[in-house]
Design a protein around this nucleic acid. Structure first.
Length: 263
DNA sequence: ATGGTTGGTTACCAA
C-alpha cells in the first residue's frame, strides 16, 4: 500500500502536479491539504479520470480544505470540527484491511509567536492541545491507524535548516514543539519519516516561495508528517520526500511525502 | 531590519 500526503496549495491550480505524481509514483491513497475549494468546485471528474474513484472531500471557500483520494474503497468517511470552528482541517476514512487514515491541516499560526498579540498563534496552540485531548477517544497501540498532514510544526533540530535561527519563528518555537511532542508521545505514535532517516540528518518537506533559488539555498523545514500506530511498525517498508516535485512546473511550496506499507 | 512569492477573492488576507 502506497500512501502520499501533500499540501497542494490549491487543487484547481495544480491538477497537472497530481497527474504527474500519479503517473510517476502510482500511490494508492493521496491525502491533500489546502485544496482551497468548496466541495462543489472540487475537480472530482478529473481526479476520477486519474483512477481515484473513491474520495472523501472536506472543502470550504477560499482557505484550508482537505481531501482523501483513493484507488481503493474508503469506508466510514468523516470529519470533525476543531477549536469550535467548522473550517475544514480534518477528514478521515478507513481503508480495506481496516487502516484508519486521518488527514490534518493544522493552522499555520501567523507570524508573531505570542498568543496575546496574535490570535492565530493561540488558535494553533489550542488546536494541537485539542488533538492530544481527542486521541484517547480514538487511539490504541494495536489499532492500525495513520495520521498524516501539514502539521505546520518542525519539531526536531534537523527538521529545519537552522535550529538557532528559527527558535523564534512560528513552526519551530519551543512551545509549539513541546505541544506537538506531547500529543505524539503521550501515545505511541511512531514518526515514520524519522523511522527511516536518522535524527541527525536534515529532512525537509517545505521550501518557501520567497527564496530566489529554493534548491540552492535549501532553507527547508519538515512541516509535513506521517505518524503510525506501533502495530504498523513491522509493515513500514519505504519512505521518501519527493523533493523533485518542489521543482515541477508551477509547484506547491510543499513536497509530497510518500510511505510504502507491506500488504 | 526588511522583503521576498503565491492563491483566492475582490481590493487585501492567509500562508
Amino acid at each position: 500500500m502506497r500512501l502520499v500526503t501533500w499540501n497542494i496549495n490549491s487543487v484547481r491550480q495544480r491538477l497537472h502536479l497530481i497527474e504527474q505524481l500519479t503517473k510517476d509514483y502510482a500511490p494508492d491513497v493521496i491525502c491533500l491539504q489546502e485544496i482551497k475549494a468548496q466541495n462543489k468546485d472540487f475537480p472530482l471528474a478529473e481526479i476520477e479520470a486519474m483512477g481515484y474513484t473513491h474520495n472523501e472531500v472536506r472543502g470550504m471557500k477560499g482557505y484550508n480544505g482537505v481531501a482523501i483520494l483513493s484507488r481503493v474503497p474508503l469506508e466510514n468517511g468523516q470529519s470533525r470540527d476543531w477549536v469550535g470552528k467548522d473550517d475544514s482541517r480534518h477528514v478521515f476514512a478507513t481503508l480495506p484491511g481496516g487502516i484508519e487514515v486521518h488527514n490534518f491541516y493544522v493552522p499555520a499560526g501567523g507570524d508573531v509567536p505570542d498568543r496575546d498579540q496574535n490570535d492565530k498563534f493561540g488558535h494553533k496552540l489550542d488546536f494541537v492541545d485539542e488533538m492530544k485531548a481527542w486521541f484517547p477517544e480514538m487511539y490504541s497501540n494495536d489499532r492500525p491507524m495513520i495520521l498524516v498532514g501539514d502539521l505546520n510544526i518542525a519539531p526536531m533540530e534537523h527538521d529545519v535548516w537552522s535550529h538557532k535561527k528559527l527558535l523564534k519563528i512560528v513552526s519551530h518555537t519551543p512551545i509549539e514543539v513541546e505541544k506537538l511532542n506531547d500529543a505524539q508521545n503521550a501515545f505511541g505514535w511512531v514518526d515514520t519519516m524519522r523511522h527511516f532517516v536518522p535524527d541527525e540528518e536534515k529532512l525537509y518537506s517545505w521550501w518557501s516561495y520567497r527564496a530566489r533559488d529554493w534548491r540552492a539555498a535549501n532553507k527547508g523545514r519538515r512541516l509535513d508528517h506521517i505518524w503510525a500506530t506501533p502495530v504498523l511498525t513491522p509493515r513500514l517498508k519505504h519512505m521518501e520526500v519527493i523533493v523533485d516535485a518542489r521543482g515541477w512546473e508551477k509547484p506547491s511550496d510543499h513536497a509530497p511525502v510518500l510511505l510504502d506499507l507491506e500488504d
